[in-house]
C-alpha cells in the first residue's frame, strides 16, 4: 500500500477516535505525549468544523435544544455520519433522519421535522436566482389550455408535511418574530401543519399551507401533474379548496418559474 495512504488512514483513525492514536503515534517525530495532545487538538477541530456547519444550517434546532445539547447531538451525528465533501456547506442533509432514530430526542418529538424544514431553508438560501412568473402568464388562457398547463416552481421551492406545527415553530424562532426569538410562544403543539419554503428575492420565507394548497402544489411540483389534475386532487383533500386564492398567493410570492401550455411554451 502507498505509504502516504497508510499515513492518512492512521491519521484519520486518530481523528475519528482517541482509540486510533496508538496506530498513528509511531509515525510522528517528537515527544509522544505532546503528539497525543496535538492529535486531540486536530480531533477537536474536526468536530468543531462539523458543529459550525450544522449551527449554520440548523439555527432553530440549536435554539430549541440549547447550545450544550446541540453540541452533544453534533458529536453523535458526526461520529455516525461524518462529512464526505470538501464543501462543508453540504454537510448535514441527513441530520433529521439521525434525530428520528436518536432515542433521547423523543422528548422533543417535533425536532426532526423542524430539522427537515431548516434543511429546505438552507438549500433555498443558495438556490439559483430566477425571475418568477407574473400574473400575465395566465392572461388569455382559455379554460382548456389552463387545465392541461404544466407549471414549474422557482428554485428553492419546497413543501413539507408534519404532525407538528413546524412552520409556526420556525417562524416564532426567527430574530424578527413578534416578541423576539426565544420569547413566549403561542403555538398549539398538537396541531399538524403543512409548510412551504421559497425564495423571495434573496430572502428565504416559510409559511403554513392548507391541506388543499399543499396537495395542489405537491401534485404539480413533485408529481408533475397538470393544472387540472392537481386541482381535482386538491379538491378531494379540502372541500372548500380555493383555487383562485392559491394561484394569487403563488404569483404574489413568486413561486412560479415556468408555465407550459399545449402548443404555447413560454
Amino acid at each position: 500500500m502507498s505509504a502516504l495512504l497508510d499515513a492518512q488512514r492512521r491519521f484519520a483513525g486518530a481523528l475519528r477516535s482517541a482509540q486510533g492514536e496508538p496506530a498513528m503515534l509511531p509515525l510522528l517525530s517528537g515527544d509522544a505525549e505532546r503528539n497525543r495532545g496535538l492529535l486531540g487538538v486536530y480531533r477537536g477541530n474536526a468536530v468543531a468544523n462539523a458543529n459550525a456547519a450544522l449551527t449554520l444550517a440548523y439555527p432553530v434546532c440549536r435554539q430549541i435544544t440549547g447550545d450544550d445539547y446541540f453540541d452533544a447531538l453534533v458529536r453523535r451525528y458526526w461520529a455516525q455520519t461524518p462529512s464526505t465533501d470538501g464543501d462543508l456547506n453540504r454537510y448535514g442533509h441527513s441530520f433529521a433522519d439521525f434525530l428520528d432514530g436518536f432515542e433521547p430526542v423523543r422528548a422533543l418529538p417535533y425536532l426532526p421535522d423542524v430539522a427537515r424544514l431548516e434543511w429546505s431553508v438552507h438549500v433555498a438560501t443558495t438556490a439559483a436566482d430566477t425571475a418568477p412568473l407574473g400574473g400575465e402568464a395566465f392572461a388569455g388562457l382559455d379554460p382548456e389550455a389552463l387545465a392541461t398547463a404544466r407549471l414549474r416552481m422557482t428554485p428553492g421551492f419546497a413543501l413539507l408535511g408534519s404532525a407538528w406545527p413546524i412552520a409556526d415553530i420556525w417562524l416564532q424562532h426567527q430574530p424578527d418574530a413578534a416578541g423576539g426569538s426565544g420569547g413566549a410562544f403561542d403555538i398549539d403543539l398538537e396541531q399538524a401543519q403543512y409548510a412551504v419554503v421559497w425564495r423571495d428575492g434573496l430572502r428565504v420565507r416559510v409559511a403554513a399551507l392548507s391541506a388543499g394548497a399543499h396537495a395542489f402544489w405537491a401534485a404539480i411540483a413533485l408529481v408533475g401533474a397538470s393544472f387540472g389534475d392537481a386541482w381535482a386532487g386538491a379538491s378531494t383533500q379540502e372541500q372548500d379548496f380555493n383555487l383562485a386564492a392559491t394561484i394569487e398567493q403563488a404569483i404574489a410570492c413568486g413561486w412560479l418559474h415556468h408555465i407550459e401550455t399545449r402548443g404555447n411554451e413560454q
Partner: peptide, 11 residues
C-alpha cells in the same frame, strides 16, 4: 490533505 476512505475532515 483532508479526506480518506470517503470521510472528509474539512481541516
Amino acid at each position: 490533505w483532508s479526506a480518506v476512505d470517503g470521510v472528509h475532515f474539512n481541516d
